[in-house]
Design a protein around this nucleic acid. Structure first.
Lengths: 192, 192
DNA sequence: TACGATACGGAGGCCCCCTCCGCTTTTGCA
DNA sequence: TGCAAAAGCGGAGGGGGCCTCCGTATCGTA
């Protein structure tokens, strides 16, 4: 039996690719403006496509949320590498964490709905976590090497604490900074 | 004009009071078992009443969530006063915070849905906050007086940090404790 | 017991998620 | 260029959830 010669290589059709982008963009905007509970009908309308088209790209609401979420994660990682290059170890770590809390609300609800749908241990989150971890570990490792943080720190500890600050309701920037200072203080090596 | 003599004092009917309790109980159980997205139809069924009855007591889904939530808050406050009586100042504070993180998942989603519905600054949350604050301030004040925590601490700072730990996904008890230790470490007076 | 006030229950309206399928557009090939 | 098949499109409609409305049943009082 001759194997069917590359029947799957037919490229994605141009209109399909275009609509995919339209949908993701529309979703990102809609979520930012009206929160993640925007209806999919509304998003399809914004993108100028039919609801059926949306559902072929994204088999369910969660899939669309995922697509928007991974972009956010990517930018978080990018910033980590940026800071690692430009700043002193502890400062790089601090700046990265600060950029977290200054970030905002949009992905709090995004992540919330995703965890509710997928479960916190889903492969999707595993893979997001791996990426963020890789970026964060770099910063933490440098700070440990410089001796400016406790040696027994685990990245996930820090992430959780800072994530907690982000989660907090009605946060004023100055309050967030004070909280972060407390955490950063806790990260420092114990004064003997 | 003689004021109408107490026309509003007619007591709640017996069946109404009974159904109210049935509904709150059914809701608490259902939320604990299946999460806060249990449908109201399901809760009414559990309680053995019609959906119309549920909606007369609780004009919307949020109202029912509120009723369950206030009970949780009450028990949090009660514990604070219990610890304040039995333990040393810092230990009482620590124990209270530890009881937070050891608590669990149920009211995380409860609070999440409520904030989404009411907004974080709603009168409802204001009043919950006041109660918790009052209980927590007692513990914090004692610890400050004993000189075992930083003098510049604000209760809300602590609450947010610890609340953040509670919010974190997939938390093992031992991890939670380590996080809490970091926070507690940060609360201590700066070693001069 | 009899009657008004109160409460009950569920049918049905509206909106949302998602599926299904007939129609249109694009693409690869001759 | 012209054509057939593959790929994609769109929206009607099923199912379920929240909530309203109103005829019926029950309670409490005279």
């Amino acid at each position: 039996m001759a194997p069917t010669p590359l029947p799957s290589t037919r490229p994605t059709r141009a209109d399909a690719a275009r609509n995919y982008d339209l949908l993701v963009t529309a979703a990102r905007e809609a979520f930012a403006e009206h929160g993640t509970d925007t209806s999919l009908e509304e998003i399809a309308r914004r993108a100028g496509v039919g609801i059926g088209t949306l559902y072929r790209r994204f088999p369910n609401r969660t899939a669309l949320l995922e697509a928007v979420y991974v972009d956010e994660i990517q930018s978080v990682c990018d910033r980590a590498y940026g800071f690692a290059e430009k700043l002193e170890p502890f400062e790089a770590l601090a700046a990265w964490l600060r950029s977290f809390v200054g970030y905002g609300v949009s992905k709090k609800s995004l992540a919330g709905e995703l965890t509710a749908a997928l479960g916190k241990d889903s492969p999707f989150f595993q893979s997001c976590k791996v990426n963020v971890q890789e970026a964060g570990e770099l910063l933490l490792r440098k700070a440990k090497a410089a001796g400016t943080v406790r040696q027994d720190l685990e990245l996930m500890d820090i992430m959780r604490l800072v994530g907690g600050i982000t989660m907090a309701r009605d946060m004023e920037p100055e309050e967030a900074n004070r909280l972060l200072d407390i955490v950063l203080c806790g990260l420092r090596p114990a004064s003997s």
